[in-house]
């Protein structure tokens, strides 16, 4: 069984008497150590998709099996545990804690793992160094540039060493040089055995991925495995 299995997933929003079909019947399977890009026009349902994959949102209908577990059957605390242990989430809008420093933000997921303060600091520093922010640890989010915030968000997702990394436009605010660095980091993570799922609208990013899924109006429009990437299963 694949790491991630979606069958018949829909997500409807009722806006008055109009129904917005953000996701409209998705069947998809993602293998362990896959490297997948979701592309598609704005409003096609990419972020909605990622929220459901990240166990943040629940589908209106359909089944989601993660590691052969039916996610629908899990309660709020069990979902929190999965988000903490299995998943690293990089949000489109960063979602940093405004009153915590860069270091504090990166340490926060470790608090919920019960890791002690000094060990937390050590791990967070390592993650910040990995994204090239080792010299901005004491800055609050509003004292950081957009790109720096994005890198804090990436460091926070990496620090728990999650098996699945979900990234929503992870390079949207970065210059081309940093973008290349981050993508190299992602490639590294992929070769280390992590499963990466990236939402992007940039072709160069998508080209890094082994598999590209194009979405349109809440449906999978095109699902292709590129030739350049190695097949690992």
């Amino acid at each position: 069984m694949a790491l991630i299995e979606l069958s018949g997933i829909t997500k409807y929003y009722e806006m008055g008497d109009q129904v917005v079909k953000a996701l409209d019947g998705i069947d998809i399977a993602v293998e362990k150590n896959d490297y997948l890009a979701f592309i598609g026009s704005s409003g096609s349902g990419k972020s909605t998709m990622l929220n459901i994959l990240g166990c943040l949102d629940k589908p209106t209908t359909g089944e989601y099996h993660l590691n052969s577990k039916n996610v629908e059957a899990l309660d709020a605390n069990e979902l929190s545990e999965i988000r903490n242990l299995e998943i690293g989430f990089i949000f489109q809008s960063f979602n940093l804690l405004p009153r915590a420093t860069a270091l504090g933000n990166v340490m926060q997921p470790l608090v919920y793992r019960g890791i002690g303060l000094s060990k937390r600091k050590e791990m967070a520093m390592e993650a910040l160094n990995r994204v090239g922010l080792g010299d901005r640890t004491d800055h609050l989010p509003n004292q950081l540039s957009g790109g720096q915030r994005q890198r804090v968000a990436i460091a926070r997702a990496l620090v728990t060493n999650p098996s699945i990394l979900l990234a929503d436009e992870p390079t949207g605010n970065l210059d081309s040089k940093t973008t290349i660095e981050i993508m190299q980091l992602f490639d590294e993570l992929h070769s280390e055995g992590h499963t990466l799922i990236v939402v992007t609208h940039e072709d160069e990013i998508a080209q890094h991925c082994r598999r590209i899924v194009e979405m349109k109006d809440g449906k999978v429009f095109n699902d292709s495995t590129s030739h350049s990437a190695k097949v690992s299963h």
Partner: peptide, 16 residues
């Protein structure tokens, strides 16, 4: 509220 949402998204349980 947003902060609470963020904490939950990165793994905070109810009791936290």
């Amino acid at each position: 509220t947003r902060e609470i949402g963020i904490c939950k998204a990165i793994g905070a349980k109810r009791h936290h």
